[in-house]
Design a protein around this nucleic acid. Structure first.
Length: 305
DNA sequence: AACCGACTCAACCGCCTGCCT
DNA sequence: TAGGCAGGCGGTTGAGTCGGT
């Protein structure tokens, strides 16, 4: 048996709200508040709407101090940064942009910002990718890289200013990242986290080099060589070195590793209420891997507020 | 002026989470 | 502890608008 509907669908009105309905809802909430019961609200007000619909209308349109204009460059940057960090958690992103709703940001991202980034940087991305890829490996990787990953590295895309978002300064070198069809993944030098501080450096050449990152509180068998120290946190970093026989899987592992990294960082922050992280680590080559020096997550000191 | 495809965004849907009993 | 319920959330839809032909 499915769950009971929150309201009688045959009775409630759907579709766009009329000015009269808006006025009634707004007036009632301003006088009496929501009473912590959206389901009962429409009955009290006397409008034929679902409680959820009232909630949505209030939060997205009627409540005070909402911004309805176009997004600024700074807001663009904040949205991008947070999307890279936490993915499509729109309510969390919205909490960093006063006056913006999660619905607004979601729509803005899906309809404009994503395309804006793609069109603005696509050429540089492809050019850079082709430069980075080694001749002998280009043929093996180009299909994956060009169809599924886009590398962003654009000096002009630096943040317009050093964060009103964060209490502390954000490293302005956050300028590039990879993006899957649906989700962005950090590939780059730095990444920071509001309030709960995280600075994380990732080798700039990660996307085309022969390893991937994996972060997990529970190191697993993927790790063939690793050494890392993470202070103030049980979270550990590991790097996976890939030898010549691993080409077929390396990109997949790379992307999965980064996704794990950001997911687990996020969980770590939220679940354990972490306020400080510090990542240090170096990797040395093992005998079988390609000729890349792996040297990431090195000395990413926390910056003071 | 009419048509049509692309785009925008308000609103809905349904799942998940957490609270209450 | 389990079940029911409301709130919260992200994904999706579709009506309205815009711009090109």
């Amino acid at each position: 048996m499915g769950r009971a509907p929150c309201c009688d669908k045959t009775v409630v009105k759907k579709g766009p709200w009329s000015p009269e309905e808006d006025a009634m809802l707004k007036s009632y909430i301003e006088k009496h508040g929501t009473g912590n019961n959206w389901i009962a609200l429409p009955h009290k007000i006397g409008i034929k709407r679902c409680g959820k619909s009232c909630r949505l209308r209030w939060l997205n349109y009627l409540r005070p101090n909402l911004k309805h204009g176009s997004f600024t460059d700074e807001e663009d940057y904040i949205i991008c940064s947070l999307y890279i960090t936490i993915g499509s958690r729109w309510s969390i992103i919205a909490s960093q942009l006063p006056g913006r709703t999660d619905n607004d940001i979601k729509n803005y991202w899906n309809t404009r910002l994503k395309k804006k980034l793609l069109s603005k940087q696509g050429k540089a991305i492809h050019q850079q990718l082709s430069l980075r890829l080694e001749p002998e490996t280009t043929s093996k990787r180009s299909s994956f890289s060009q169809n599924q990953i886009l590398m962003f590295h654009d000096e002009n895309a630096k943040p317009p200013l050093h964060q009103t978002l964060h209490n502390q300064m954000v490293d302005p070198s956050i300028t590039s990242f990879a993006m899957e069809e649906k989700r962005m993944v950090p590939v780059l030098e730095s990444f920071s986290w509001e309030q709960n501080k995280v600075w994380l450096d990732i080798d700039h050449d990660a996307a085309s080099s022969s390893y991937h990152h994996h972060a997990s509180p529970h190191l697993n068998s993927m790790t063939t060589s690793s050494s890392s120290i993470c202070t103030n946190s049980p979270l550990q970093m590991s790097h996976y070195t890939i030898n010549d026989n691993d080409h077929g899987d390396q990109e997949m592992f790379f992307m999965a590793g980064l996704e794990n990294l950001q997911d687990e960082l996020f969980d770590e922050i939220i679940n354990n209420n972490k306020t400080e992280f510090e990542f240090r680590g170096t990797e040395t080559l093992n005998n079988n891997c390609l000729g890349h020096e792996i040297n990431s997550f090195i000395d990413c000191p926390l910056k003071d507020n």
